[in-house]
Design a protein around this nucleic acid. Sequence first.
DNA 1: TATGAGATCAACT
DNA 2: GTTGATCTCATAC
Length: 192
Amino acid sequence: MVVLTRDFFARSVHEVAPDLIGTTLLFNGVGGEIVELEAYHHTDPAAHSYRGPTQRNAVMFGPPGFAYVYRSYGIHWCLNFVCEEEGSASAVLIRALRPLTGLATMRRRRRLTDERLLCSGPGRLCEALKITGAHNGLAIDAPPFELRARATMPDIVKGVRIGITKAAEKPWRYGIAGSRFLSKVFRPNSRG
DNA sequence: TATGAGATCAACT
DNA sequence: GTTGATCTCATAC
């Protein structure tokens, strides 16, 4: 079992994104396999960093390998990991996990029994793992985070991102082909 | 199966 | 005052 360090994130966000698919993300020992994520680059109008630093997105402008957690629609928390190099302000948004450990804990936090719905969405997985703004800025390679390398090469599909209006045509959403834990199915013929 | 309302916060106009 | 990297529940088809 190989544990990934923050160095893993110190390259193009478009390289990191597919490489993260199939890795295992744990938070205080609870979590699962990353089955879906999206890439956001600082030159991308859909990225929070596009218009420059603010109090909220400050972590994005720091070094790679750190968590950027923000509140979405005033209700949910969403988890990102900073990529590339300090100041480039790129990140991957973790969108869905296949639950592996701490199932009972996640079910209690989500008040759900359906395993498929525990972590199939950015807001959902943060509730299941109990990740909040208090964890903004934490390193990926130190507790409570742990990131484990994948053992086998997953079948990765690519598609357009979800829930955005700007640069909506960019195919920067990645996932495991056919996984039942995706937040939404990938459009047909989007493999690539 | 599909659409709509409501929750409620940070950034922007 | 409006919009958004969301989710759940309710109502309509």
